[in-house]
Nucleic acid binder design. Sequence first.
DNA 1: CCAGTCGCTAACCTACCGGTCAATGAGCAC
DNA 2: GTGCTCATTGACCGGTAGGTTAGCGACTGG
Lengths: 222, 222
Amino acid sequence: MHPPEYMTPEPRSISLEKSQDSRDGILKAGIGLFARRGFHETSMSEVAREAKVSKALIFWHFKTKEELFLAVLNRLLEPYFIDFAEEVGILDERAQLRKLVQSYLLFIRDNAASVRFFLGQLLHGEKVPEELATQVMKLYDAYRELMIGIVRRAQDKNLCSRDIAPEAAAGFMVSALNGSLIGFLFTTGGTTDELDRAVTMLEEWLFRDPAPRSAEGGKAVA
Amino acid sequence: MHPPEYMTPEPRSISLEKSQDSRDGILKAGIGLFARRGFHETSMSEVAREAKVSKALIFWHFKTKEELFLAVLNRLLEPYFIDFAEEVGILDERAQLRKLVQSYLLFIRDNAASVRFFLGQLLHGEKVPEELATQVMKLYDAYRELMIGIVRRAQDKNLCSRDIAPEAAAGFMVSALNGSLIGFLFTTGGTTDELDRAVTMLEEWLFRDPAPRSAEGGKAVA
DNA sequence: CCAGTCGCTAACCTACCGGTCAATGAGCAC
DNA sequence: GTGCTCATTGACCGGTAGGTTAGCGACTGG
């Protein structure tokens, strides 16, 4: 079996290093081409040309085109994670919401290309191998779960209306964010103003009437 | 020049009728295959097989594969229009909003496949020939314009808060709808419950505090 | 009845696709 | 040096893609 199934933690020799380099170069080229043109529009010869290696080498590193594509998707998904756990306890729920939402926006801004690619691929169906699709879905659910937590805590502290279930409220907010997202993805050179507007609107929406019966008026954060 | 550039309003002969029939059959097959598998995954031979004609006939009707694809997109867009003008005057703004939103949902429900296809294609870029993209955008803008009108009238009648500009409110609501839409598109066998929930939420959101200073409490529609 | 067009097809063409393979150079162990 | 494995390549293969062409039967106009 020629291709190394798993890389050793530290490179043992120059050859292995070079091997990893070429593999990375191929992956890099694949990322660019697949994201720009999609799976079927991209040929292995193009990837080879872009990576400046022979086509055969690609098939030495990756058994099939699908395997390369899978590796590309995996690498694209690497930055998809949530780093929200820290320093959140000291913020009130309103600030927590703002922070969570902004982390969403920041992520979108930084990964617009791959998000667009991945979303298109998911919509198109079939070419995303379940495993990755569920991975994305899990991430999505985790995000919504964070938001549910915020809403629940805000309701407990009577910071916002208790009329709607936290799950429904969070689901709605995430949907609204997604909607703004696709609006953003379609304005190619676009500003993030629309996104920012959605953020403040969601904030106002969630914290619109804090105390249904209590007489104490809440101090609004400017 | 073999292929008829434009069809005559009424078929002059049996031959022309048959020609239109076969053309329609090809288009129909193309719609199914392109929508199910995308542009590059679909071969002309497949279309020919599905339409039960020879491949050459397709190239007789449509000069290239791109031209067939374009015709398919055009036909897919045919049901994309807004029939909202009628009988709207007699409804109050709340009911108007509900009706407008429901027409959106209904449309999505009926055209889920083609919406998914078109959205994926737009996200993927490149394969949608500007002309059609702007057509869709115009439709989108028209819809938002309708919503802006509703919000503005509701504000004039003091039915809802005047804190936000109608454009911003409408934009937000359309975004929220779009977000719910993609949520719906991803749940394959999915229910429309999530969509319906978003609808009521948007309604509650827009008409949350009708009279900022007036003492008269509004009667809520159950 | 005959010429011409229309609708249509089988067979064909070229280019390129994903994928294979034999060969080869470079580093490493002995 | 002599092997040995690893990384890499150019040449090649069968299959299929989009597209072309020569021609055939069925109508149509004169």
